[in-house]
C-alpha cells in the first residue's frame, strides 16, 4: 500500500458495500473508517496489507476489512483508544472516532511486531 493506493482502495471498499445494498450513510461511514485506517497504516506502520471481504452472519451481511502492518506496534492500546490521543501529526481521533463508525472493531498489536486492525460494518448496523 502506498499513498496513491488510498483512493483506489476506497473505491474497492465502496464496490463491495454497494454490491450488498448497504445504505449511503453506512457506506460513507465504512469508507471513511477504511480511509482512516489505511492512513494510520501508512503513517505509523510503514505500509502493510489491507484486505476486503464480504461476510454474512445469520441474516446479516456485512463487509470485513483487515489492515495488517509490520510496524512498531502500539505500546498502550487503551491509551490509543482514548479520544484526543496521538503520537503523530494528526488530530488524534483516528482510532476512537473510527471505532464509532463501524459495527465491530478489533485492534491487536505487539510492540515491535506490528498491528492488525479488523473492522466489520453490517449492512444495517
Amino acid at each position: 500500500m502506498k499513498e496513491q493506493d488510498v483512493v483506489p482502495y476506497r473505491n474497492r471498499v465502496k464496490e463491495h458495500a454497494v454490491k450488498m445494498g448497504m445504505g449511503l450513510v453506512n457506506q460513507t461511514k465504512l469508507i471513511t473508517a477504511a480511509s482512516e485506517l489505511v492512513r494510520n497504516m501508512l503513517k505509523y506502520g510503514g505500509g502493510g496489507i489491507a484486505t476486503i471481504e464480504t461476510i454474512s452472519q445469520g441474516r446479516e451481511n456485512g463487509v470485513r476489512l483487515v489492515f495488517a502492518d509490520k510496524g512498531p506496534g502500539i505500546k498502550d492500546i487503551s491509551l490509543a483508544m482514548k479520544d484526543g490521543f496521538t503520537t503523530g501529526r494528526s488530530l488524534g481521533l483516528g482510532l476512537p472516532g473510527t471505532k464509532r463508525l463501524v459495527s465491530e472493531f478489533l485492534l491487536e498489536s505487539t510492540e515491535g511486531k506490528g498491528t492488525t486492525v479488523t473492522i466489520i460494518k453490517w449492512k444495517n448496523g
Binding site: 460513507t28 471513511t32 472516532g97
Partner: peptide, 14 residues
C-alpha cells in the same frame, strides 16, 4: 456537504 458526509463527520468527532 452531503448529508451522509455530515453524519459521518459528527460520528467521527470532527
Amino acid at each position: 456537504m452531503q448529508p451522509a458526509v455530515a453524519i459521518t463527520l459528527i460520528e467521527l468527532g470532527l
